[in-house]
Design a protein around this nucleic acid. Structure first.
Length: 548
DNA sequence: CGACAGACTTGGGTAGACGTAT
DNA sequence: ATACGTCTACCCAAGTCTGTCG
């Protein structure tokens, strides 16, 4: 076991503002101490973000900022409302503009400098192989944002110093030098873990790690193992489903809750839903942490029976909204679990993820709740590709089918994105193209008619040829219109769907590789360079007859 | 057990690189 | 050549799950 690296690259130290860029308090300029000024710039940079208008953000920021002030500053700066950061804000906006306006040569020079750092710090040696590191830089200080309604938004995220950093490498390797005048917190030689360096972050008091890039052998092997576990689930999933159906009728409530939760995890690809510390993070839930207020039962709805309406915030505060017709015993059990409870009570009050996973472990070695997501995602891709791919289609048509299959998975896993800022605009441009094409089609139709009339009158061969010519043109235009319409549909369907996460984390790449080989699609058409590096193991391994 | 620490995967957002249409 | 839209790389937060400790 050998692990050798340079340690993390530390982001540059704070550079003080020029003299003429001032902070104002209560309308008067105020020279700030270096540390206080640095934190002020964090806030100033964010001025045009909506979240600086949120009370929690402002309070957290002001509280943390005051802690870092000198006692003199604390005496003066008592209200955030009286702080004027606008000059500082403008300074950074201008600086940004200036950087964008740099000449090609200057930009090239900056890039070379960045490449040099990457070259020096971005790689390590693992068992004799040079491997790319994922994140080799420490995170810069700033104001914590978080996602959704995070109670800690606006808090000060402190600068990481070498004295905070634990280095992990092999005993026989060249131990990285800390920056001049500094020491590491610790150097250890632990070959049971995969990280190269770590530090504790001050907002949630959790560890951050420097780890290898997904293209590395180590990560690739882990990825492969993950999909192999999911493939093993394929063999036993029918038994497991039979089992949880039986458990719906168990005399133990705890077992019933486990069986219903597992049904949701399997059918709807919900996350496990660990419990979280209240007040420390945004209020989000997964399966086991669902509360009564997150579901509504409809004995009948839109012509379906036993409909459960889900509405809750999941990971990253992404909304999960779904109406699902469930099997009758599930519906009955849910009614029972909700009886005499308040909206804020846990739906599965007897259930924890640990209890659920213990059970799963017993059903299959290595089985946990999240394996169902991987399994269902991958099997769905395989089935959808089978159903949607038409061998007669051209490459573009086949790729559309691939995207549709990918999209089915993203919908299953509820991978959403906010509508891109340019969406409306680019949709409009496309619509204009469609309208123009429609007009052309209409004109071509008129032309055909005219030519036909002329032929009917004259019956001469020249006129007949002209009819054929006009018809051909019409056909081509109609095809172009159809293609534009497909494109518009595709775009609209993809508006709020994020395909990347499933592609990167849930879909066994061997399914895609096999599909490409089978239908003669170049692999570059579905995986970009980074993705090909990450999935190199699969590209090597999978033949066209690979079955998940 | 249950709380907590630790390690690792999964997740959406965004700046800026990049490619394409004009 | 440039403007503009799209894609990628990067960022770092937020999950999952295991092991340990009292």
């Amino acid at each position: 076991m050998q692990l050798e690296h340079r340690g993390p690259y530390f982001v540059p130290l704070y550079e003080p503002l020029p003299e003429d860029v001032r902070f104002y308090y209560d309308g008067k300029p105020l020279k700030l101490s270096l540390a206080t000024e640095e934190i002020a710039t964090f806030y100033a940079k964010m001025l045009d973000h909506e979240y600086t208008t949120k009370e929690i953000f402002q309070n957290n920021f002001f509280h943390d900022w005051r802690k870092e002030m000198t006692s003199e500053e604390q005496e003066i700066i008592k209200e955030l409302d009286k702080c004027d950061f606008r000059e500082i804000h403008k300074y950074f906006v201008d600086k940004n503009e200036a950087r964008k306006a740099l000449s090609k040569e200057e930009k090239q020079k900056l890039k070379e400098e960045a490449d040099k750092i990457q070259e020096e710090y971005g790689y390590c040696i693992l068992d004799g192989h040079r491997e790319k590191i994922g994140n080799f830089k420490t995170e810069p200080p700033g104001l914590f944002r978080g996602r959704g309604e995070h109670p800690k938004m606006g808090m000060l995220k402190k600068r990481v110093m070498p004295e905070d950093v634990v280095i992990n490498c092999s005993r026989d390797s060249k131990i990285p030098e800390p920056p001049e005048g500094h020491k590491w917190k610790e150097v250890r030689f632990d070959n049971t873990v995969t990280w190269l360096a770590s530090w504790t972050e001050n907002i949630q008091n959790t560890l951050k790690y420097i780890m290898l890039n997904p293209s590395s052998k180590l990560k690739g092997e882990k990825d492969w193992e993950k999909y192999e576990v999911a493939r093993r689930l394929k063999d036993v999933v029918h038994t497991i489903r039979a089992q949880y159906r039986k458990d719906w009728e168990s005399t133990e409530i705890k077992k019933r809750q486990r069986a219903v939760a597992l049904y949701f995890i399997d059918k709807l690809a919900l996350r496990a839903g660990n419990e979280k510390e209240e007040g420390e993070t945004a209020d989000t839930v997964g399966c086991c942490s669902l509360r009564v207020e997150h579901i509504q039962l409809h004995p009948r709805l839109d012509g379906q029976e036993h409909v459960v309406e889900f509405d809750f915030l999941g990971k990253d505060s992404i909304r999960y909204y779904n109406k699902v017709s469930v099997e009758k015993p599930v519906f009955k059990n849910l009614k029972l679990f909700m009886k005499n409870k308040d909206p804020t009570d846990d739906l599965f009050d007897q259930l924890t993820t640990t209890f659920l996973n213990k059970h799963l472990q017993h059903l299959m070695d290595g089985l946990t709740a999240k394996v169902f997501r991987t399994y269902n995602a991958s099997i769905t891709l395989q089935e959808q590709l089978k159903a949607l791919t038409n061998p007669e289609d051209n490459v573009a048509g086949k790729l559309l089918s691939y995207n549709r299959a990918n999209r089915a998975v993203a919908i299953l896993c509820n991978h959403q994105r906010s509508v891109p800022k340019t969406f409306a605009r680019s949709m409009q441009v496309l619509q204009e193209k469609i309208d123009a094409k429609k007009k052309q089609v209409e004109e071509a139709q008129a032309e055909v008619k005219k030519a036909e009339d002329e032929f009917n009158e004259t019956k001469d061969a020249k006129a007949e040829a002209n009819v054929e010519k006009k018809k051909k043109l019409l056909k081509r235009l109609e095809e172009q219109l159809a293609r534009l319409n497909v494109q518009a549909t595709d775009k609209e369907e993809n508006k709020q769907i994020a395909l990347g996460t499933s592609k990167l984390n849930y879909l066994d790449p061997r399914i895609s590789v096999a599909w490409c080989k089978k239908f003669g699609i170049p692999i570059e058409r579905i995986y970009n360079k980074t993705q090909r590096e990450k999935f190199a193991w699969a590209i090597d391994m999978a033949g066209e007859d690979f079955e998940f």
